[in-house]
Structure formats: C-alpha cells, structure tokens
C-alpha cells in the first residue's frame, strides 16, 4: 500500500514535500514569479518509514501467530 501510494503520488525520490512551486509569469515585466501551493508529496523518507512500519507489523503479527 505504501509503495503504491508513493508511486501514485509521483514516485518522488527526494524528501517529502508539503508544498510545490508553481511559476506564474508577470505579463508586463515578463518575470517568472514563484507561488507555493500546499500539497503533500511523499518522498523516500515516507516510503522508508512506511516500509519499516509495515515490516514491524508483519513481524509482530507473525510472532503472535506462532505463540498461539
């Protein structure tokens, strides 16, 4: 699930972002202005943490099953 979510969000190989830049051209000066829009883009840190948590849950559930 974590890998699918990460891949569907653009497979960002950098750190997780909470905003993304958009360029807006000023018609008079022709300067490119930068506007940041709030958007969650999971990065490799999110992917790693998600995989680690998934692994821990799997290990705990396996250990509990064996105890039974």
């Amino acid at each position: 699930m974590v890998v699918i979510f990460w891949a569907m969000s653009g497979a960002n190989r950098g750190w997780t972002k909470t905003s993304v830049p958009h360029t807006v051209k000023d018609p008079v000066t022709e300067l490119d202005g930068v506007v940041y829009v709030n958007k969650f883009v999971p990065g490799v840190d999110f992917l790693g943490a998600g995989l680690l948590i998934s692994g821990l849950i799997a290990a705990v559930s396996l250990a509990l099953q064996r105890k039974k």
């Binding site: 950098g14 830049p21 807006v24 000023d26 000066t29 300067l31 202005g33 930068v34 940041y36």
Partner: peptide
Amino acid sequence: GVNNVIFKTDAPLESINGT
C-alpha cells in the same frame, strides 16, 4: 509579489531548490 530570489545547491547526495 512577483519579485523573487531562487537559490539552488547541487551536492553529491542532495539537490535543493528554494525561493
């Protein structure tokens, strides 16, 4: 609010862009 300064660093492990 168009005026901006963009900064970029390109290090071996990481590339960072900001404004």
